[in-house]
Design a protein around this nucleic acid. Structure first.
Ligand SMILES: [Zn+2]
Ligand SMILES: [Zn+2]
Ligand SMILES: [Zn+2]
Ligand SMILES: [Zn+2]
Lengths: 167, 167
DNA sequence: TTTTATCGTGTTACAATATAACACATCGAT
DNA sequence: ATCGATGTGTTATATTGTAACACGATAAAA
């Protein structure tokens, strides 16, 4: 996990240089598409860029609204959902099921499970390392007999910044 | 966690006595409502019973269909959603976000986080103990600075029975 | 006993999220 | 030139969930 994060915490600081986040995400996306021989078309890139517009999950219809900004005509839902499906497939974004919303992946260079901390106050979502959970997952596989293929974890609570606000 | 489960696994065996599951769930629900001084009305009880009709998550509109069986008129969505909200609030059921569906809680006697194993083949969903994950969660709280209030974990894969089928 | 407050339900309409189906366009390979 | 594969446009529709307001039962208060 990179990069542009607060030293005290894995959460991005409100004042961080977010353009750097966007730039590095797009660079990583181009790289990944080259590797996997997939095309990052204009629509797909624009959607990815809009998703990286913040560290908060954004819904498909909000993305449609954002895409419409400064354009003559709105795109229809399938256009956005196709782009989302493509980006999900490549691991460039994750879906936050509890919010029906999408957020950029912090490290698309390798496939991984979907672990997020989500602030219920400001909607900040921070991707986190599944590593520390894997021994418990292994134990669970043993006990349950399930063959676990996908892990999806959503923690809700208050981010450091919102805790300060509410004190 | 009780009860009517396969000895080899926490997953319910396909041949288990499921009426016992339903009965004990309803008994537990009546008990909990008495404790918390809440009313388990006819609609609420019927919805809970239908949810316990299987160990698979069921959607709100499927519940409406099931409620309509043998009745003159269908109930409208708000009726089902109100019952679901009530049952969720009391912890008698959980919502599986990835499926927009609802499933009975194995142990509503005390509040707890939502941890499920879900079979992608037969949709069986098995609630599991958050305990083994809590040290990793504690570490994550430290590192992230988040105040974590809710945990929602969904593991997808193949249940023991479906693994046999596919061999 | 009437009054009033609370709670649960009925009903209508609608919002928000997502997909099916089919037409068309682009582009590289044969 | 033709074909096949892929990406997009367009229309309609499916699925999931809520807002708003009216009605009815129950039970405490007057
Ligand atoms: Zn950033
Ligand atoms: Zn926050
Ligand atoms: Zn059972
Ligand atoms: Zn199965």
């Amino acid at each position: 996990m990179p990069s542009n994060l607060d030293a005290q915490s894995i959460a991005p600081h409100p004042d961080h240089d977010h353009q750097a986040c966007i730039d590095s995400a797009l660079t990583a996306a181009r790289e990944l598409c080259r590797e996997k021989q997939q095309k990052l078309t204009k629509t797909r890139e624009k959607v990815l860029q809009l998703i990286w517009g913040s560290h908060r999950p954004i819904g498909a219809y909000s993305l449609m609204d954002a895409l419409a900004e400064g354009e003559q005509k709105r795109v229809a839902p399938p256009t956005v959902y196709r782009a989302l499906d493509f980006l999900l497939e490549l691991g460039l974004i994750h879906r936050i099921n509890s919010l029906n919303a999408y957020i950029g992946c912090q490290d698309p260079s390798h496939e991984h499970h979907c672990y997020f901390l989500i602030c219920t106050s400001c909607n900040l979502a921070v991707e986190t390392d599944p590593g520390p959970f894997q021994s418990a997952v292994g134990q669970l596989k043993q006990e349950s007999g399930f063959e676990i293929r996908q892990q999806n974890m959503e923690f809700n609570g208050l981010c450091p910044h919102c805790q300060e606000q509410s004190e």
